[in-house]
Design a protein around this nucleic acid. Structure first.
Length: 768
DNA sequence: TTTAATGAGGCC
DNA sequence: GCCTCATTAAAT
């Protein structure tokens, strides 16, 4: 019902024209105006018997936009009757792009929810959710297939034809299946001229078909099937909890909190077996980094038909997997973040492994969190969601505790399988035991020496790549920064260059201070390259492998490095956080954390949580065999609660200390956060814009009487990035809807000036 | 008075 | 995001 103000006059009678209902498609655009637009569906596009040009929700269409009727492509999100009047008729659609729907009705609802939740135009969400290879039908091609009509075939001999044409017709009639133009020409040994002559005379008929260009891609490696493993009581109890939800056929979120090595994976593998036995599909989300052949192998051992989705796939491969999933040919989808959108026709269960990982948050639009999207999807489809972690996010943990607005069921697995003990953790106080030079303290050195003599293997974590992490002049204090970013340059010895880890700008290492010309420039701070050199120098003849973003650049290098470690060819594995997660090597008897504080001092309210997670996770890489294991954690802050809790493998202690602090400040999980990030080349322009946004936001919050607190505007912790200045504005509120309402009223309508870009990040995972 | 330039608003 | 139309300023 439309509302009319008392002061609005009724329109004069001659302006009211005959309205009629026409069949219309509602269209959203991947870029450009964010709204929904209705277009009349021409009769030719309303016939389901012509599937190639049929308009239905989830397909892309061509539509004329604006006065100039500029052709645009958009997603049809709904079809239904809409009013159209002679004075303002609906424009007709121009065409249909997709021969099948790319987005199911339930995925349309999910993306609609995302558009609302993350304040991102619906069309942009869809564009970000449907892989480009699927849109472009990568790996397929229109092929013209030629055949002889049966009528013609019957009187083949009676035809008078030029010799070449006769040969062609003979060959095609003899073929058991239709041939392409090229194939036929090849077979006869002629050009396409005689073939086309026959087509023109109607003696050859042709049809166009979409076919795979490259035949079958690398087939799934055959893997020997493994039976389900016997479960210990903790595992059995957890499985029962999940199966109760599966069998009830209702949505429920189950947080599986199991210590490292407690056998979480086996539990959800068995839960998936049940789901698959009902003819339904399961989606398993894992952090990108753990999508290794080993992980995937565990699924292949247990399921016949799995699909893998990750970001390093080609468009062709992704398209193929997507089609298999949509066709119902797949039992289990294993994938990174975006696999939460897998088009399973009959979803039965979603599992998010390592639920606390920040890689589940996408850092470009649509800036969604796969955990939150999965929660919404499973709720809408009425299926259970399993979140598994040894170190759950505090968001998930709080939902498992009494009094939370959202209730998750908690399943705890406090013991390792085989009743293996958790490794003993020793803290080395670097203020006391730190030596003047080097990364390895005496206690760590001794432990390494011992471990090597006992034939064990060692993992060393240092969460910084490069050689020296800062380049500084002792004379004037100048620290070398990136020319384009407000970030310290890291010296990489391998490339003999200083590198910006944010924009990859590189330059020659300075030999004198760029500021005061002092020749005493110092290279300080420890990165993985320098650690590797130190280990090599102090443990001569011991094989060492470094794993970080620099050594893992080529595809497969991850596998090569881990295989070498598994087979004992490498004794010491050192690297950044990519070695901290999920690895399961029973012969690792020592884990060393070179610097537990590296994440502790970041300007981020989650710094303590990150530190706890990282130390706990890497500590869990040892003690997985009969030989036990120990952990040495080096820190300058041995009394920090996060480190103390990690030392005791005590998640609940960490949570019970951190949660009150979060509550006091209104930080997540007790409040919702949003962050407006504006960037641009001109700092004054940026400041003026964000000040204006702050003003309108403040007014919107006041008018709504909402509980939304604004912090800033202020320079972002990284003030400059890729040559642009950055400022941000934070919003805190107990209510996400209040934040969104404020943003809709106070941010959306303010168009940034030329040269300023502004984005909103709902539930940001970092503050940089 | 004409022409160029900048900005706001609609796009169904 | 792009086009159109309005408003305003500069040029003839």
């Amino acid at each position: 019902m439309s509302q009319r103000s008392l002061f609005d006059a009724e329109p004069p009678a001659w302006e009211i024209d005959a309205q009629s209902m026409v069949l219309a498609a509602t269209v959203v655009l991947p870029s450009g105006p964010p709204g929904e637009f209705d277009y009349a569906i021409p009769d030719t596009m309303a016939d389901p018997r012509k599937p190639d040009v049929y308009v239905e929700p989830g397909r892309r269409v061509r539509a004329p936009l604006g006065r100039g009727n500029r052709p645009v492509v958009g997603y049809c999100v709904a079809v239904g009757p809409k009013p159209s009047s002679p004075s303002r008729p609906l424009k007709p659609l121009r065409g249909v792009l997709d021969p099948v729907s790319l987005v199911s009705p339930s995925m349309l609802r999910l993306t609609r929810w995302m558009a609302d939740h993350y304040l991102t135009p619906w069309g942009q969400v869809l564009e970000g959710v449907v892989p480009s290879g699927v849109r472009g039908r990568a790996g397929t091609r229109d092929v013209t297939l030629l055949s002889v009509p049966t009528k013609v075939a019957a009187r083949l001999t009676g035809l008078e034809l030029p010799p070449k044409q006769a040969d062609v017709l003979q060959a095609l009639a003899a073929s058991s299946k239709p041939l392409s133009l090229k194939q036929l020409a090849m077979r006869v040994g002629c050009t396409t001229a005689p073939i086309n002559a026959l087509r023109k005379r109607g003696l050859i008929e042709s049809r166009v078909e979409r076919l795979a260009t490259d035949g079958l891609l690398a087939e799934d490696v055959a893997v020997e099937r493994q039976p389900a493993k016997r479960l210990n009581p903790d595992q059995a109890r957890t499985l029962d909890t999940i199966l109760a939800a599966v069998d009830a056929g209702e949505h429920e979120t189950i947080l599986v909190h199991g210590v490292t090595g407690s056998g979480k994976t086996e539990v959800y593998l068995q839960a998936i077996e049940r789901v698959v036995s009902f003819g339904r599909q399961a989606i398993v989300l894992v952090p990108e980094i753990s999508l290794t052949p080993q992980t995937v192998g565990r699924f292949r051992e247990r399921f016949d038909r799995i699909a893998v989705l990750h970001s390093h796939q080609s468009d062709v491969e992704r398209h193929r997997q997507w089609r298999r999933i949509a066709a119902g040919d797949v039992e289990v989808v294993v994938g990174a973040r975006s696999a939460v959108f897998a088009p399973t026709p009959h979803l039965g269960l979603v599992v998010i492994d390592e639920e606390h990982e920040t890689t589940f948050k996408q850092d470009t639009a649509p800036r969604y969190h796969a955990r939150d999207v999965a929660l919404e999807r499973t709720r809408a489809e009425g299926v259970p969601l399993v979140l598994a972690s040894a170190t759950p996010s505090l968001e998930a943990w709080r939902c498992s505790q009494p009094g939370a607005p959202e209730r998750f069921r908690l399943a705890s697995m406090p013991r390792r399988i085989g009743d293996l003990p958790m490794p003993a953790v020793r803290v080395v106080d670097l203020r006391v035991d730190g030596e003047s030079r080097g990364a390895i303290s005496r206690p760590l050195y001794q432990a390494m020496d011992q471990a090597l003599r006992d034939d064990g293997q060692i993992i060393l974590l240092l969460n910084r790549r490069g050689y020296s992490t800062h380049v500084q002049c002792p004379a004037c204090g100048y620290a070398l920064k990136c020319d384009h970013c407000d970030v310290a340059m890291t010296f990489h010895r391998q490339d003999n260059a200083v590198v910006c880890h944010w924009c990859d700008y590189r330059s020659a290492p300075p030999t004198v201070c760029p500021d005061c010309r002092s020749p005493r420039i110092r290279y300080g701070g420890m990165g993985t390259q320098k650690l590797e050199a130190e280990v090599n120098a102090r443990f001569r003849g011991v094989s060492v492998t470094r794993m970080d973003a620099d050594t893992m650049r080529r595809p497969g290098s991850h596998e090569t490095a881990l295989d070498a470690f598994r087979h004992g060819e490498t004794r010491i594995l050192l690297g950044t956080q990519m070695i901290a997660k999920g690895l399961d090597f029973p012969n690792v008897t020592l884990v060393g954390v070179i610097s537990a504080d590296s994440a502790l001092n970041l300007p981020d309210f989650r710094a303590a949580e990150r530190t706890f997670q990282l130390v706990t996770q890497v500590a869990g890489r040892t003690g997985r065999g009969e030989r036990g294991g120990r952990v040495i954690v080096q820190t300058f802050d041995p009394d920090h609660p996060a480190i103390l809790a990690a030392v005791r493998h005590d998640y609940e202690r960490f949570a019970s200390e951190e949660l009150p602090a979060r509550r006091a400040l209104g930080y997540p999980p007790f409040g919702v956060m949003a962050r407006i990030i504006a960037r641009g080349a001109s700092e004054p322009l940026l400041t003026a814009y964000l000040d204006q946004v702050a003003e309108t936001l403040k007014r919107a919050v006041q008018e709504a009487g909402a509980k939304v607190r604004l912090v800033g505007p202020a320079p972002a912790p990284i003030t400059r990035l890729r040559g642009e200045f950055r400022r941000h504005l934070q919003m805190h509120s107990p209510s996400g809807d209040a934040v969104r309402a404020a943003l809709r009223a106070g941010w959306l309508p303010i168009k940034p000036p030329e040269g300023v870009r502004s984005v909103v990040d709902i539930d940001p995972t970092d503050m940089l």
